[in-house]
Structures are given as structure tokens and as C-alpha cells.
Design a protein around this nucleic acid. Structure first.
Lengths: 333, 333
DNA sequence: CTGTTAGCGCTTTCAC
DNA sequence: GTGAAAGCGCTAACAG
């Protein structure tokens, strides 16, 4: 059963006295084979324990079952769930995700995209709209579908799936304004990501239109977590003691903020309102559920994968899929 | 620059008047090429925007740059970090992880392993020791290195990287016993994973050897989170009011337990001690840092990847890499 | 140091 | 419904 040379289609063909092509037809499901031959082939495959070599198959057919997935991180924020959604949908269709992690570095992104294309990926799922010129050009020039995820307002190279970050940010700001807060703080990060910066930009512009103040020290250069939320809030309060409400760039930071308030005996929301961004479970599990914006993280992944799969078979796909967001009015505001 | 037919090595070779092989030699770095020719090749590659077709390369060389990674989840517990560690180390070496998510289903695991092997994966990284018979046989019969991660006590198919869960569990139990607790509760899950069940088994046996009581309702069938921690603790207390210390199967649950105690006004650790498992940041960011066992999640991923890479080049590798664990004595016990 | 010859294992295309 | 021939784009192995 285990030879030193791996079994080939030909071995299967020989044992039952048919040609290679017949085996190939049965296994790929393309072309016609009589029921009888098909059954014999399948049985031989099973008995021999034959595993096809997809490298050869993909080379010959010049198409592969792999979808390149290029994300900034597998641990931060939404990406674990996005990746899960992608994997789920791809695997259902017999495809595999080849995952690359850029760590928020567009040059690494570029070399990962190259690598994915070298593998003849059937499609590419990539984060955000911010790429190097070469990355964009590679993706434009290649004939496989590309889905840029997270953002929807902008110009996708090909397709995109996500939601409107600026609108979400404004929605959150409006909620806080309606609650009567006038002095705001923002704690986020200044990475390259279009999504994060468009959220901050929208909040800044929106508040300024309303003539409201915003203190936003730039502290972190990549998405921070609970500890940074605590430390950041402590510093923000020291710098801008008049603030009444703090918007955090993500839920984990906001939870950190909540924990800080608790430790310092700062009453939430009476002394200070707290808002997050993401809709993570942990935020909703706090004694005071976090006010935040939730959006369908897992579904962004699923939809991105489905979009690729549909585009591949030439099916008509929506160029821009806006999956929306939802304001969660917790009790921290 | 963008033709309809993709550029091949031959196109590069033709434009500078050398043979295909010379180009191949430059690009793979195998064999010798004069500095002058090499430079011309590289320049032509750049100018033409040539991207190699690794499908063809891998078929010809019958070896690939892809490592199959089969994990139960990309969102739960340690796996995001493990996956990151793997991706980091592989990408540094010019390899790509092809990730499959089993969702704790050994049959899905089996079909994913098949798929990885069809791609001629250079190696396989897979979770735990629990597989179907066929999965184990496939991995044994194939000539690529397999690394089973998380556990170290058991019989790896080939190689393994992780730590001793039973010892870690006993260490935690000993700590609690030393603190004087006598009536214990355990809230975990009863999945197929060897790691999780060996932790529970070790605690149960260890406590029983000391003649101590353990209430352990089996509530969840897959790794639960904060909400399940809260709900589980509520139920556990109702069922077994005499418990003095609760060990949670993971840190997220334990944080849920902490939040529950806070809401209910249960004094931690005076009325009830809480312990987790994992060493996540969130546990340490709580007002009372969580007592837990931490272990090098990211490094398990990195080491697994490095082990594959070393094994591939025939380098001598440690069959069993025990990366250890550490008791964090928080203030919840 | 470089070129030539043969494939890698499969699928495409075209016969019959 | 099935087979034969040709080749996907690259690399191993050997010559020179």
C-alpha cells in the first residue's frame, strides 16, 4: 500500500485496464464515463489508496484550488474570525486558503501577493485598500479575482466586501452627542490601514462640524489590546482632564478602559463614557455592556470567499458588498 | 507587460539569449552561473515582470514550498497565536502555510490532511494526537515530516512540539491545595482533544489522590468563552455550593467566572478562588490578575514550523520538544 | 559555467 | 464512451 514511489493515475488505470484519461475523467468529473467503468475506477482508487497529485493537475489545467488570503494578523481584532469565515466557505467548496500574514507591513504584503500568484491561486482575498503600487499592479494585471475586505467606500481593484467605517464612526459619534457628551477623547492607532484611519477621520471631522472638542494622542502604531487601553486612558485623562467620553479604536482597548475606570473608581458612564468598536463578546460580557459598533466579522470572511468562488465560475457578482454595521447601545454611555 | 499568456522562464531566457536552465539556475539558486549572466537574468526578470510558476517548479522538483497546517479553530484559545507563530517562521523561510480548520471534527481533519498531501505539502503541522485511523496511516505512510502540536506525552506519529498538560494541571492543583482549598469545581469541555482531556484527567486523579472533592459538570462540547464561563459558574455554584475553588478549562472562561463573581458580589478569592489555563493578556489585565498556567503559545507555532523546516533539509531534529509552562500566581487564589 | 535531453503527473484536444 | 498524442512550465541529470 505504501510504495516508495507515489502512486499515479496510471497505476490506477493499469490495474483495471483502462487508459489514464478515463481515470482522470472519473476523478475530475469532467467528461463522460459509463457507470460501470466509473465504479471500477473508484473502487481501484480506494483499494490502492491513490491520492491524486494536484500539483500536476493544476499545472496541466492551469488552475488551482487554492485561494490566497493576505491578512495583517491572525490574532488581532477581527482577523481570526474573518479567516475562519474564509476557511469555512472555501473548504466547503473543496478549496484551501493559503494564508499570509503581513503584520501591517505593505512590503511584506507585496511579497506575499507575489507568492500567492506564483502558486496560481484561484483568487486573492486581501485586507483593505492600502497597497504598494506594485501590489496593486500585480493584482490588476493578473486574471484572477481579487477581493479587498473590510472597506466598501473607495475603489476596489476588482471586488470588495466590508462595511462603511466612516458611516459607522459617525453613527457612534452621533449616539454619544445625542447623549449629551461634548468633550471627547479618542484612543486608536495610526497604522497604514485605510479602515482604521477612515474611522478616526470621520469622527474627527464629524465632531469638529458640531464644534465639539477631541483629544486624540497618537500613541500606538498597531492595533493595541487591553493593556494599551488601560495605559492609554490613564495618559489621556492626564492630558485632557475635561473629556467626558472616550472612543476607543477597538473593543479590547475599550475593555481595558473599563477596567481602568473600575480600578480608579471612575464612574462609567456618569464621570466618563466609554465606547468601543467591533462588538466582541468580551465587551458585552462586562458588568456594564460596552457601547460599541458591531459588524459581521465572520460573514465578511464567508462573503469574501463566496465572492471569489462565484467570480471564478464567471458568475455575476456584486462588485461592492456592504455588509453593514450595528450600533450596540450598551450601558457605558 | 501584461500579456494574455503568462510569461515563462523561456521568455526570459530568449530575451537575453540564454537557455531556460540558466534562468532556472539563477532563480532557484542551485548550480553555478557567472556573475555577469546572473545579473542579466535578474534584470530581464525585473524588466519583464516575470513571476515563476511554482506549480510547474514543484511538480518537476517534486517538492513544494507549502506546509499544511491543520487546526481545530482560528479563533479559539491558543490557535490564533499558534497559527501566527507558524506563519511567521514559514514566511521567513519562503514557505507558505496552507491552513485548514477542522472545527474539532476528526473527519474533517482527515479530508484536510488528504488535501494537504495532494498538494505535496513539504510538511504537516497538526493539532494534538487524536486522529482517525486513516489520518494517522496517511501521515505515517507519507514521506514528509509531521509535527503534532500541543502535547508532548504520548506517541507522536513523527515529531511533536508542546508541553505536558497533565503536569501543568497538577502544578495548578498543587498550588490551590497548598493555598488550603479543599472543595474544587472544574469547568471545561469534553471535546475529542487529548490535551484538554488530559488536563481534566490529571486534575481529577490528583485531587482524588489527595482525598479532595471535585464537582465537574460536563457542560460544553467545544472550547467555551466568557459567556459560558459566567453561565457555567452560576450553574456550578447552584449544584455544588460547598466549592471553594474553581478551575476553568481556559482563561476566557475564567474571566467570565471573575466577572460573574463581581456581579454577584462573591469575594475572590476569599469566598471563591478562580483559576484559568492559558495565560492570556485579558486575564492578567483584570483588577485581580488571574491565577493561571501560561505557556508559550506563539513559540509552539514557531518551533513547530522550524522543526518542519529543519526536518525537511534532513537536519537532526528533536523528536519531542517540550516548551514547558509556568504557573502564574495571580490574586484570584 | 552553460546547454541538451527527458521527464514530473496530470489534463486538453481530438480522434474513433 | 474511450483512447492516443501533446504539452502545461519547470527542474534533474548529464554532457561538454
Amino acid at each position: 500500500m505504501t510504495k516508495s514511489r507515489r502512486l499515479t493515475q496510471r497505476d490506477v488505470a493499469r490495474t483495471i485496464g483502462v487508459s489514464d484519461m478515463t481515470v482522470s475523467r472519473v476523478l475530475t468529473g469532467r467528461g463522460t464515463v459509463s457507470k460501470r467503468t466509473r465504479d471500477r475506477v473508484l473502487q481501484a482508487v480506494r483499494e490502492l489508496g491513490y491520492l491524486p497529485n494536484r500539483m500536476a493537475g493544476s499545472l496541466a489545467a492551469s488552475r488551482s484550488n487554492q485561494v490566497g488570503v493576505v491578512l495583517p494578523s491572525l490574532t488581532v481584532g477581527i482577523f481570526p474570525e474573518v479567516a475562519s469565515g474564509i476557511a469555512f466557505e472555501l473548504e466547503k467548496a473543496g478549496y484551501n486558503p493559503v494564508i499570509g500574514v503581513t503584520d501591517y507591513d505593505v512590503l511584506r504584503e507585496e511579497s506575499l501577493v507575489e507568492s500567492m500568484l506564483s502558486w496560481n491561486a484561484a483568487g486573492i482575498i486581501i485586507n483593505d485598500f492600502v497597497h504598494t503600487e506594485r501590489t496593486a499592479q500585480l493584482l490588476r494585471s493578473v486574471h484572477v479575482p481579487t477581493v479587498e475586505i473590510m472597506q466598501v467606500s473607495g475603489h476596489p481593484i476588482h471586488l470588495c466586501v466590508g462595511f462603511n467605517h466612516a458611516a459607522a464612526a459617525r453613527c457612534l459619534a452621533d449616539h454619544l452627542i445625542a447623549k449629551g457628551y461634548r468633550h471627547f477623547g479618542f484612543l486608536g492607532w495610526h497604522g497604514t490601514a485605510f479602515a482604521a484611519s477612515s474611522r478616526f477621520g470621520a469622527i474627527r471631522d464629524h465632531l469638529s462640524e458640531h464644534g465639539l472638542s477631541l483629544a486624540a494622542p497618537e500613541l500606538f502604531s498597531s492595533p493595541p489590546g487591553v493593556l494599551e487601553g488601560k495605559a492609554g486612558l490613564s495618559r489621556l485623562i492626564a492630558e485632557a482632564s475635561e473629556i467626558e467620553a472616550v472612543i476607543f479604536g477597538n473593543d479590547l482597548m475599550a475593555v481595558g478602559g473599563l477596567l481602568y475606570c473600575e480600578e480608579q473608581g471612575i464612574a462609567v458612564p456618569d464621570q466618563l463614557a466609554i465606547a468601543g468598536f467591533g462588538g466582541l463578546t468580551i465587551g458585552q460580557a462586562m458588568k456594564r455592556p460596552l457601547t460599541t459598533i458591531s459588524f459581521p466579522r465572520y460573514d465578511v470572511g464567508r462573503r469574501a470567499a463566496r465572492t471569489i468562488l462565484n467570480a471564478m465560475v464567471g458568475q455575476d457578482v456584486t462588485k461592492i458588498s456592504d455588509l453593514g454595521f450595528k450600533l450596540i447601545e450598551g450601558s457605558t454611555s
